[in-house]
């Protein structure tokens, strides 16, 4: 049987954003499983196809864009009145990093949990990221990095965000965290996130925390 993610990958490579979106929206699984079981394996598969010389870098970029489009449409249903929520989370990809899908899925999980969310997009220089953070004072800053040679830059970003006066929680994710042990770079405020389930568990923790009545 062909899995949903295989249909999804095919739609992405065909540039068929309508089909891609339809596959996501018609799936009955909860959103986190749609991210984990359809989008993630499809994107990995597309990377593998490049390694197998079946597609070009240009195909990959197109597929990523279609995926981004479908994901944006899919997650639109969770964009509700979070404007008044006190919890704010900001997400970004490092400068020179275009791998945006993972952090968008995480941002969507936050939105679904009634956080105010801003995704600043791919390729964000540290100075711009800091400026946004200073203006908006997010409680959480999510950093995403996929390219191993950018690890020194990631270190700088983490160090800079840890200096912010209101001490936001910093989450670091992306492909590099599976390839390198980043914990040495991370201070008390920074947490490495290895997968979507961890994000979901972290969000549950945050949501349940005030229930003990001692806040």
């Amino acid at each position: 049987m062909t899995e949903a993610w295989q249909h999804f990958a095919a739609a992405l490579l065909a540039g068929d954003e309508r089909q891609a979106y339809t596959i996501l929206i018609e799936d009955t699984r909860p959103s986190i499983r749609v991210y984990k079981e359809i989008i993630t394996p499809a994107m990995y598969d597309i990377g593998e196809k490049w390694l197998r010389n079946e597609i070009t870098v240009a195909d990959e970029h197109l597929a990523t864009s279609v995926c981004d489009f479908a994901l944006a449409q899919y997650t639109f249903q969770f964009k509700q009145r979070n404007r008044r929520s006190e919890k704010k989370a900001m997400f970004l990809c490092l400068e020179d990093e275009q791998h945006v899908i993972g952090s968008k899925m995480i941002a969507a999980l936050f939105e679904e949990n009634h956080w105010q969310v801003r995704h600043l997009g791919p390729n964000l220089p540290l100075s711009d990221a800091l400026k946004s953070a200073e203006q908006w004072h997010p409680d959480v800053i999510g950093l995403s990095a996929a390219i191993p040679y950018r690890i020194t830059a990631l270190k700088e970003y983490i160090a800079a965000f840890e200096q912010l006066s209101w001490e936001p929680q910093i989450l670091v994710g992306g492909r590099v965290v599976a390839m390198h042990d980043l914990r040495a770079y991370c201070g008390r405020q920074t947490r490495v996130i290895y997968n979507l389930d961890e994000v979901s568990a972290w969000l549950d923790e945050k949501t349940e925390a005030p229930a003990d009545g001692v806040r």
Binding site: V57, A58, H61, L62, T64, S65, D68, F69, A72, F76, K79, Q98, V100, H119, G121, P122, N123
Partner: peptide
């Protein structure tokens, strides 16, 4: 091919940000 790929991804990023702007404006 870096230049061509960069051009392509630049255009795609523009499209993407337009998309999210539209989303945001709608919202």
């Amino acid at each position: 091919k870096t230049k061509e790929v960069d051009n392509l991804s630049g255009q795609l990023i523009k499209l993407r940000s337009r998309l999210s702007d539209t989303d945001f404006e709608l919202l």
